[in-house]
């Protein structure tokens, strides 16, 4: 079995007696993208910073590419995008990127990287004069310029406009395709759903759910089937035709809602029943759960408080 790109087991960290990370475990498979998803204050950044070697754990083990996080040989193999800052305010955008590129043996071409991230026009602008979004993108460029095997991205798209977000997503997808392992933190559901192979949902320093996006949105899920038809159809008859555990109601008049495990059989039962009633079910739609719903179910709270 190949070594995990990142293996965290039973990680604990407390500040002033308050547990910020409380027995967190996760595994990042090589060449995949793992999203650490959770609200602000869930312990995502603390977890990532322990993995990056910036903080020490109170308990638990962390192995980065099979090594302890503080191991100095990891610095050349791991790229890091911290949540904020991290550049000389007095250096120009391109100067900062070239400086960090010069620390690596075979870096990416800095000018090409700037161009692809839409930073060519501000290449000669000092870091302090870049907009927040431009600083974010430079920070992303700094994380990948050394051609690392593993990249940590802490809230990579926070505060980015849609175009910049798309450029960031494309870069993450290209990294994955080229075999780079990526751990990213986010509180954006669509980001996790689009980019991640595996999602680890954290809340209050603990893992509340883990799995692929498909697994998480499917397991234990109660699906919803909505449709419109003639008002006042016989729901009792429908319920006898549906699998046990399903519910059906009409509210408001003419709008029907069936809740249960939505599969082809359920759909067939509903359409057969409406045909039997001489009615045509229209506007038929299946609503699947999003990670947002999963998070709400697991924690009882909205992700973006």
């Amino acid at each position: 079995m190949t070594t995990a790109a990142l293996e965290v087991d039973g990680l604990r960290k407390a500040y002033a007696g308050r547990a910020v990370v409380d027995g967190l475990s996760l595994t990042l498979r090589p060449g995949t993208v793992l999203a650490l998803l959770g609200p602000n204050g869930a312990g995502k950044t603390t977890t990532v910073e322990i993995c990056e070697g910036f903080r020490t754990a109170d308990a638990g083990t962390v192995r980065v590419l099979g090594l302890p996080p503080a191991e100095s040989s990891l610095r050349a193999r791991v790229g890091v995008m911290p949540q904020a800052g991290g550049a000389y305010p007095g250096l120009r955008c391109a100067e900062m990127l070239r400086l960090v590129a010069s620390f690596s043996a075979s870096p990416l071409d800095p000018d090409d990287l700037l161009e692809r991230l839409g930073l060519s026009e501000v290449a000669r602008t000092s870091y302090r004069r870049l907009s927040g979004g431009q600083q974010q993108r430079l920070s992303l460029a700094l994380a990948v310029v050394g051609r690392p095997e593993l990249v940590f991205l802490d809230e990579p798209t926070a505060g980015l406009d849609p175009a910049a977000r798309r450029a960031t997503w494309e870069l993450v997808e290209a990294l994955r395709r080229d075999g780079v392992s990526v751990l990213l933190t986010t509180h954006l559901m669509d980001e996790a759903e689009r980019l991640a192979d595996d999602v680890v949902i954290v809340d209050a320093g603990r893992v509340v759910a883990t799995g692929t996006v498909a697994e998480l949105t499917r397991t234990g899920a109660v699906g919803q089937l909505r449709f419109r038809a003639t008002p006042g159809l016989d729901l009792e008859q429908l319920l006898t035709a549906l699998p046990v555990g399903c519910t059906a109601k009409e509210s408001p008049s003419g709008d029907y809602l069936v809740e249960g495990v939505v599969d082809p059989q359920l759909l067939a039962a509903v359409t057969a029943w409406s045909a039997g009633q001489g009615a045509l079910a229209t506007d038929l739609r299946v609503e699947t759960r999003t990670l947002e719903d999963v998070f709400l179910d697991l924690t009882g709270r909205e992700l973006r408080a």
């Binding site: 990416l108 990948v144 870069l171 080229d178 075999g179 780079v180």
Partner: peptide
């Protein structure tokens, strides 16, 4: 902005002299 050609981001880690 343009797309990344395959392999262009393939890892080649190592510290400079």
């Amino acid at each position: 902005m343009s797309t990344w050609s395959p392999g262009s981001l393939a890892p080649r880690p190592g510290a400079a002299p």
